[in-house]
């Protein structure tokens, strides 16, 4: 099945982070019917950092993730993964294959598949048609799925259809799928929306533990949660970066207080 692929891409095409940066967003603009959801946005991520993105509703946080993951094409500006991969020229699955994983704002799992099968499909490995037609799970892969189930606390639900999980469990299953995919950059959109206090704490621990070996971008409204995990915070407002820095500085920033924290 030959669907056109980006010619510059092959499996061995590792992300090039020799400059220490893993993501470069420069002058990104996205407009919907004249309205600018992103307005010359610039953002850089160091490899291994955990970055929180906050900002009022409609600030463009989800749109930014859409651009990075290939769902939305920017009107102008550039988005590079490392110094080699031009994300604006790659399709969604190519972006996923070079190592960018995404958790949606609304939890998105495969409702008709069991929890186990959800993780099986997410598991890192060949995505080719012929491979999946004949693939059998190796012992090592089964172990990795079992480990993933354990990490997200769904071992007992392994053979339940994911559609029957509670909202919180679905959030966690999606995070588990993201981990199984083992991306280098994780885009996590509102991971604790609708979670209980203890679930929120566990999510914070999990995401914090990923930093260092992974680069993590978390969009979140829950300020308590952001305080728990944040090292660097970026505040978006009307499609632009309003402020960026450590949490204490952001909380004291007059501009930020007026558009966001104060309200």
């Amino acid at each position: 099945m030959t669907v056109p692929q980006n010619p510059s891409l092959d499996a061995s095409d590792e992300v090039d982070t020799r400059q220490g940066m893993i993501l470069y967003l420069e002058d990104l603009t996205v407009s919907f019917d004249g309205f600018k959801a992103l307005d010359e946005l610039c953002l850089y991520l160091r490899e291994g950092e955990l970055r929180c993105i906050i900002g009022p509703n409609g600030a463009g946080k989800t749109t930014m993730m859409d651009v990075i993951s290939g769902k939305t094409r920017p009107d102008s500006g550039s988005a590079f993964f490392g110094i080699r991969h031009d994300l604006t020229q790659m399709s969604e699955h190519e972006i996923a294959r070079v190592g960018i994983g995404r958790k949606f704002q609304k939890p998105t799992v495969f409702p008709g598949h069991t929890v186990f099968e959800n993780l099986e499909l997410a598991l890192r490995g060949s995505r080719s048609l012929w491979h999946t037609l004949f693939a059998k799970l190796s012992g090592e892969q089964q172990d990795r799925i079992a480990l993933g189930l354990d990490t997200v606390g769904l071992s007992d639900e392994a053979h339940l259809p994911a559609g029957q999980l509670s909202h919180g469990q679905k959030q966690w299953l999606e995070i588990g799928m993201l981990l199984a995919q083992d991306p280098k950059l994780l885009l996590v959109d509102e991971p604790v929306a609708g979670l209980s206090l203890s679930e929120t704490e566990r999510t914070a621990e999990l995401l914090s533990s990923l930093a260092g070996t992974h680069t993590v971008v978390v969009v979140e409204h829950d300020m308590e949660f952001v305080r728990q995990i944040a090292r660097t915070v970026t505040v978006l407002h009307e499609g632009r970066v309003l402020a960026e820095g450590p949490m204490e500085k952001i909380q004291a920033d007059a501009k930020v207080i007026s558009v966001y924290l104060g309200s």
């Binding site: 969604e92 996923a96 998105t108 495969f110 409702p111 099968e117 048609l129 999946t132 693939a135």
Partner: peptide, 20 residues
């Protein structure tokens, strides 16, 4: 597994794409 991918496409196509 290909069949499971097909059903996944039916139920949540974008999740399948973003899984690679």
């Amino acid at each position: 597994r290909l069949g499971r991918v097909l059903r996944a496409v039916r139920d949540a196509e974008s999740r399948v794409m973003f899984s690679g």
